[in-house]
Design a binder for these strands. Structure first.
Length: 580
RNA sequence: GCGCCUGUAGCUCAGUUGGAUAGAGCACCGGACUUCUAAUCCGGCGGUCGCAGGUUCGAGUCCUGCCAGGCGCGCCA
């Protein structure tokens, strides 16, 4: 039974004396912003006063006087303000929570509400037409952190990357590469209209020119695990590709470009600590007939019709603004249909829930997708779409154009080179998902040493330093025990304890609301409490009992700090490097 | 025109799902290193929460209408 349950039950028991039962008087307990208002607070006197014809404050006083608690659990009950009843949690109970957390028991287990259910989280899924654009960095940070959060609350979460390798744009990329290559090979061809003008295409052509067929084959082996089985090298020598029939020639160049780009993209992901359980290829949907089968299924639901030679999905039946084409008049399936097939397969693969992270430019896509899911008989709510607002990058005081076609964009790797992955991830995770943020690259570079992430890292390193010093001075670190911790006296110590104990609810809240940024806020608060404690209290001192208790507090703080940093994917250093 | 998102300190952003005196970092001003690491701590400056109504004990948070900005409204992906 949690402390909340204890207080709630007692309050409800007393409210019954006024003729108020559960439905009439739902007791809400919350943590006051101001610690002077206690550890927990309820407004129940205010919400019920009117019905009872009483003054809120008077009722609160009367109620408070009747409440009976074990003093070790609830140390005090006070009334305040317009009629709040504030509770202060007893120290013994707080120490018990602290020890539970240290052992991985209690609340940190109670938040495991997922019951092992499988959730698919799809994020980034950038087109394979260039190096990962820096706008994907935000999605990466959010997606992977959400995966970890879901696992922390007991789900079996699965990170997935959808590779859109069957579309026209890959073909266009191949033709762009062919044009650059032909130039270098001394047989120049016109560059395709709307082709990919980025420098990386020219570089790729240059590299390709130096490779023979065996070396080309070798390029494919960088990631040869199950997810990348489909990523293979085109056969033959690149110079010969120019003489092949146009279609076959384009196919080879496309295949090569795709292979290279996916390798880059995956390497970049690694660098950012983004591990995907699955890289799912659109081409597989076409080859295995899943696209046709999804279409069949839609047909059966009666929501497909023919018009002007094309097949349409009647998405207006599901709240969309207009119906959508699924098969073009030329017989070609649309991207939308493939996406429907993809999600249908996701469902069939046994995921009980799916979350897609999308950019704001795709929000129009949501109603038709949800409609298609319903037409396919997939339960409402199965597919959850999270829109992550765009990041605008600013450099030299000007917004940076992010068009892949024009090749004018900042890559994720460049960001990592500039500010480091920890700083980048941390910055993204301090913003809530739907904030439209301006990311000033110049400022980020300058501030990388002033960045809040160092505040948190420093707290961790500092604890490590204290513990090292203690051990060097002959102290042996031991299992924290109640007998030691209950002796803590200072406000700074108890502030720290209260902060530590919040961890489970922070994790649960961040996971369920899909707001990973709560973790960085918590990490900063926790680090702040530790720094204050450090300044106010000498940890390794004269008094043996006090020192022992404070060392134990340090150990628990370090563990929690490390756990949080692990969740956001930032390294928890044993010591800080040199500051520039 | 319609839809989604946003508007909080000079700047970048939080604000625990409707609570008490709206917070933090940066910037600026002033203090604390003979000490377990000063990448830290303490204090100060700074606000018409875009504007106007409404809902109620109570609104930055909810509802309506305006204003401003971003994005979207293809047989593109």
């Amino acid at each position: 039974m949690t402390i909340q349950d204890i207080i709630r039950t007692e309050l409800q028991r007393r409210l019954e004396e006024y003729g108020l039962f559960d439905e009439d008087a739902a007791v809400e307990l919350e943590k006051p912003r101001d610690p002077a208002h206690g550890d927990l607070s309820t407004n129940v006197a205010m919400t019920t006063a009117k019905r009872l014809g009483r003054k809120p404050r008077e009722l609160a006083g009367e109620l408070a006087a009747k409440l009976q608690f074990d003093r070790d659990v609830v140390a005090s009950v006070e009334i305040a303000g317009p009629g709040f009843i504030n509770f202060r949690i007893g120290r013994r109970h707080q120490v018990a929570q602290l020890l539970d957390l240290w052992r991985g028991e209690g609340a940190i287990q109670d938040i495991r509400v997922g019951g092992g259910r499988r959730i698919n989280v799809e994020f980034i899924s950038a087109n394979p037409t260039g190096p990962l654009n820096v706008v994907s960095a935000r999605a990466g940070a959010f997606g992977i952190t959400l995966v970890r959060l879901l696992n922390a609350i007991g789900y079996d979460a699965h990170a997935e990357y959808y590779v859109n390798d069957a579309g026209r744009q890959v073909h266009l990329l191949g033709r762009s590469l062919r044009a650059r290559f032909s130039e270098l090979a001394g047989r120049p061809e016109p560059f395709p209209e709307d082709g990919y003008k980025g420098l990386y295409v020219a570089r790729m052509a240059e590299e390709l020119l130096a490779l023979d067929s065996a070396a080309i084959q070798q390029q494919a082996g960088v990631f040869n695990d199950e997810s990348f089985q489909r990523v293979t090298a085109p056969e033959g020598d690149a110079r010969d590709w120019l003489d092949l029939p146009p279609d076959e020639s384009a196919r080879r160049f496309s295949k090569y470009a795709l292979m290279k780009i996916l390798t880059w993209q995956r390497q970049t992901c690694r660098r950012f600590g983004l591990r995907f359980n699955t890289w799912y290829f659109e081409s597989e949907l076409h080859e295995t007939g899943r696209v046709e089968r999804a279409l069949e299924q839609l047909r059966k639901s009666g929501s497909v019709y023919e018009l002007d030679g094309a097949l349409w999905f009647r998405s207006t039946d599901f709240g969309d603004e207009k119906d959508r084409v699924v098969v073009r008049s030329g017989g070609e399936p649309t991207y939308f249909l493939a996406d429907v097939a993809y999600h249908f397969h996701k469902y069939q693969r046994g995921f009980e829930h799916a979350i897609d992270f999308l950019g704001p430019d795709h929000h129009g896509h949501i109603p038709r997708m949800q409609g298609a899911m319903r037409a396919l008989g997939i339960p409402d709510g199965w597919l959850e779409v999270q829109i992550l607002q765009q990041v605008n990058f600013v450099e030299n005081g000007r917004p940076v154009d992010m068009s892949k076609r024009e090749g004018q964009f900042v890559t994720m790797d460049a960001l990592a080179d500039d500010v480091g992955t920890d700083v980048a991830k941390y910055i993204f995770l301090t913003r809530r998902p739907n904030s439209h943020l301006d990311f000033d690259l110049d400022l980020a570079r300058e501030q990388s040493n002033e960045n809040p992430v160092y505040y948190v890292k420093y707290a961790h390193a500092r604890i490590c330093a204290v513990l090292r010093k203690a051990e060097a001075g002959g102290w042996q670190l031991q299992e924290p025990v109640e007998a030691d911790l209950a002796g803590l006296q200072q406000d700074a110590e108890w502030n720290l304890v209260r902060e530590i104990v919040r961890l489970p609810e922070v994790i649960l809240g961040a996971a369920e609301s899909r707001e990973p940024h709560r973790l960085t806020a918590y990490a900063a608060d926790l680090a702040g409490c530790f720094h204050q404690f450090y300044h106010q209290c000498v940890i390794v001192g004269e008094n043996r009992e006090v020192t022992r208790a404070r060392l134990e507090l340090c150990q628990v703080t370090r563990k929690v700090l490390r756990d949080v940093l692990d969740l956001i994917g930032v390294e928890a250093p044993e010591q800080m490097g040199d500051k520039e």
